[in-house]
Computed example of a mutant assay.
Amino acid sequence: MTRRRVRTRADLLEAAFSVFAAKGFGHVSIEEVCEAAGYSRGAFYSNFGSLDELFFALYRERAELIAEQVSGALAGHGPDLDVPAAVDRVTEALLLDRDWLLVKTDFLVHAARRPDVARTLLAHRARLRRAVADHLARARGHTRLPPVLGDTEGAAHAVVAAYDGVTTQLLLDRDVDHARAWLKQLLTALLTDGDGSDGAGTEPPGTEERTN
């Protein structure tokens, strides 16, 4: 891929992200993405076959960013990974981006009605869970995972489900600090049987004033 094409592709992805966040996936045309990026339809089709394909490129970028954040938070720690401390580091480093959550949620609804799209999205989510499971596998020499989770694959499913739930709440209340506090509490409880040393069992800030 030439440097110019790399730049064009990056511009189209950036423009698409902004347009999807503002208008919603499914309410945006290829022409609108091209106009926002300042390119022709020809430039679009030389990089992407469809808006679905463009979205998956966005999804891969974001998944890689999340993986880098997790890996960076865990860097320098060997097999004896301290799970509660790791949860602290990961939840502090993790980007909670409401615009991305809007785009992702729109696309989940779109995929639910398109089995072919759903299969591809499920494959991407499976790769994300495997990455989480790989990190959890390193932790087993230090902290025993709760038996109810089964193996590290089951624990990875629980981690991703907790993340999905907390970020859904973030879409509604727009409170990033509260979402981060809840994510930290949920992950600690899930991965340590609730006996973590970082505040598991206590209410996150503002909980008593909220209803779900």
Score class of each variant (00 low, 15 high):
Asp82Gln: 08
Ser50Arg: 01
Thr202Asp: 15
Asn47Lys: 00
Leu122Trp: 07
Val70Ser: 02
Ala155Asp: 05
Leu170Trp: 10
Ser29Cys: 04
Phe25Asp: 02
Leu183Glu: 06
Ala161Tyr: 09
Arg41Tyr: 04
Pro84Trp: 02
Val103Leu: 02
Ala189Met: 14
Arg98Tyr: 01
His27Leu: 13
Gly150Ala: 06
Tyr59Gly: 04
Tyr39Ser: 01
Arg4Lys: 13
Gly78Asp: 15
Thr207Phe: 14
Ser46Tyr: 11
Leu172Glu: 10
Arg140Cys: 08
Arg9Cys: 02
Phe48Cys: 00
Ala131Phe: 10
Thr188Ser: 15
Ala22Thr: 02
Val109Met: 12
Pro115Lys: 01
Glu14Asp: 13
Ala181His: 02
Phe20Gly: 01
Leu108Gln: 07
Thr168Leu: 08
Asp80Tyr: 08
Pro84Thr: 04
Leu171His: 03
Phe107Trp: 01
Asp116Val: 10
Thr120Trp: 06
Arg138Asp: 10
Leu58Thr: 12
Ser197Ile: 13
Gln69Glu: 15
Arg140Glu: 13
Gly154Tyr: 04
Ala133Thr: 05
Asp11Asn: 07
Val132Pro: 09
Gln185Tyr: 02
Ser71Val: 07
Gly72Asp: 06
Phe20Tyr: 00
Arg130Lys: 10
Thr152Tyr: 05
Thr152Cys: 12
Asp99Trp: 01
Val148His: 14
Leu54Asp: 04
Gly49His: 04
Leu96Arg: 08
Thr143Pro: 11
Glu153Gly: 10
Phe20Gln: 00
